[in-house]
Design a protein around this nucleic acid. Structure first.
Lengths: 154, 154
DNA sequence: CTCCGTGCAAAAGGTTTGCACTGGT
DNA sequence: ACCAGTGCAAACCTTTTGCACGGAG
């Protein structure tokens, strides 16, 4: 069981290394250990939590490096941010069930309402200890303005 | 059209005032204007964006008040946070389509996989200018630990 | 050998807190 | 009059940036 998980992690890491070689990006100890640390956790840690973990293996690593490497890994699509908006809390005056279109680039959000999405099968109360009573879907993509900008850059 | 929207806002505000009276919570100018400001916007502003807006009506309002009032309104279920995790970015090593159970109280998250949720009808490319290519569902509720704690408090 | 990645320190957001004062009820 | 809400300033936490050094390709 544990071995199976370990193998998966090893596999992901070696695929990451191939990807780096392909793109001519240096494979550093820090990157390998940061990726490994995230992959070994079953939760969804913050950069700082990863920093604390990684420190056990690389005591002199800098917090800055952890932040930079994580964003680099996101850029390579090796890992994901859990939610792709900026780092400020956003508020919504609409309290009935509705969904959002979110731009990966700039965090811009638009509402998305669709009756067929409003009666999905919910995890039953008690799922994993959670009492779930509502849900909201984030549709992810690129907004018109960012698309235009990306095209202009090349 | 505009009048219809204005009426909705007025209605929400007067319902908010009733709720306050019911609970013996003071209705202040600041609260009314902050709520109104959020309701009049069609986007999902940050506390700071609301602060800038509200300033036009109450030039001497403090940023602190805006932060506090918004959280108070969330507590009363009059408005919502767009995503209910803490204020640090979280990373996920799992890059295939999957969903999350999120605790409203503490932000704890668990993965939720369900084949029947992995082929929902997506907004067609171009919806509102967005090119959507993926989605993820956030199921919202209370985790076991927070439930226990809330019961202990009364 | 050349760059990119790293570490450090400082700055830049975003948010919270303690305290004195003001304003709703 | 009482208590909760507000404003201010300072603290705090998370993230970003500039620069000099060191290690990977």
């Amino acid at each position: 069981m544990q071995n199976k998980q370990d193998e998966k992690v090893k596999d992901r890491i070696s695929r990451f290394e191939s990807l780096c070689r392909e793109k001519g990006i240096p494979v550093t100890v820090q990157r390998r250990v940061i990726l490994q640390t995230l992959l070994q956790r079953q939760d969804h840690p913050t950069a700082d939590q990863i920093f604390e973990d990684v420190r056990k293996q690389i005591p002199d690593i800098s917090r800055t490096t952890v932040y930079r490497v994580l964003e680099a890994l996101v850029g390579l699509a090796v890992i994901r941010r859990v939610h792709s908006m900026g780092n400020a809390v956003r508020y919504d005056g609409n309290i009935h069930r509705h969904h959002h279109l979110v731009c990966r680039e700039c965090g811009r959000m638009a509402d998305w309402e669709s009756p067929e999405l409003n009666n999905l099968p919910m995890p039953k109360r008690k799922a994993l200890g959670f009492h779930i009573d509502d849900y909201t879907i984030q549709f992810m993509g690129i907004c018109a303005e960012c698309r235009r900008q990306l095209e202009h850059e090349g």
